[in-house]
């Protein structure tokens, strides 16, 4: 099985999200960067599939040169090849991102063979457009199912089983390979990178591809924080002594 995972470099935000003065972006000067939890699970799954079935796993990002940090994280987990489709620091829109990924996949596949599976996050951690993976799949004429929390490759049959959860049930899809899946956190429990993996990834070569970026029809104008109803906080006390007032409150609500 040859597997490709697509990841996006995003700011790792905490309790509040600082914005730039013009409101066009997150002010990342004091922030670290990461990939989303869904994508961490996609990376882990790719490593496991290759450990189990053999083959190779690659990771790809469309982003600025700094996004190598995120590629190297994936490589430290065990993905062998890292590919950066180089853009500026501005976020690309979902159509442009998908087109850049499609071009890069075509280039990579023309040199070897098709990836049996391409894994995406169900939605990117920041923009959450819920569409890049589906666009890539369609352009490559491959099946795509989203919301996936279970992947069972059946390479001997040339198929893969994909499981997803709904509020009221579970669905299992069968798709012919090569296929695309957009996955959700909970698919697996990602490992922490081992020291040897980190050292290997640090020295690994990263392939770069210069894309032709054609802007799509969705244009980000401005970011702003959501309005929030300010709550009055009532301090019920300190330490174990607060138990009385807490249970008074619970009793008032009819909960005890």
């Amino acid at each position: 099985m040859d597997v490709l995972v697509c990841v996006k470099r995003v700011p790792a935000t905490g309790g509040t999200i600082p914005l730039t003065a013009d409101g066009r972006d997150v002010d990342t000067r004091s922030l670290g960067f990461t990939i989303g939890p869904h994508e961490e699970c996609a990376v882990e799954e790719a490593a496991r599939i290759v450990e189990r079935f053999g083959g190779s796993a690659a990771v790809l990002t469309v982003g600025p040169p700094q996004a190598d940090e995120q590629l190297r994280y994936a490589m430290s987990i065990g993905l062998q090849q890292g590919v950066r489709v180089t853009t500026g620091e501005e976020e690309t829109d979902p159509e442009a991102t998908a087109a850049a990924i499609v071009d890069a996949v075509r280039t990579l596949e023309s040199e070897t063979r098709p990836f049996d599976l391409i894994l995406f996050g169900n939605e990117s951690a920041d923009a959450g457009n819920c569409q890049v993976g589906i666009r890539v799949a369609h352009a490559l004429a491959r099946p795509a199912v989203g919301g996936i929390k279970g992947i069972e490759p059946q390479p001997e049959h040339g198929t893969v089983r994909l499981r997803r959860e709904l509020p009221d049930g579970i669905e299992v899809y069968a798709a012919p390979l090569p296929a695309v899946a957009a996955v959700r956190e909970g698919l697996n429990l990602p490992r922490y990178p081992a020291v040897t993996g980190r050292l290997r990834a640090k020295r690994a070569h990263i392939r770069t591809i210069e894309p032709e970026l054609v802007p799509g029809g969705l244009r980000k104008v401005r970011l702003r924080p959501p309005a929030e109803a300010a709550r009055e906080t009532v301090v019920l006390g300190h330490g174990a002594a607060a138990a009385g007032p807490v249970v008074d409150m619970l009793a008032e609500l009819g909960m005890v």
Partner: peptide, 25 residues
């Protein structure tokens, strides 16, 4: 942030506060 945005806040170690709430209930 959870403390400043909450309706009710208790400052303390969960290992003391939660067992005390359970005992009180």
């Amino acid at each position: 942030p959870m403390m400043t945005r909450a309706t009710y806040a208790v400052t303390g170690d969960v290992h003391e506060v939660v067992p005390a709430i359970i005992a009180e209930i």
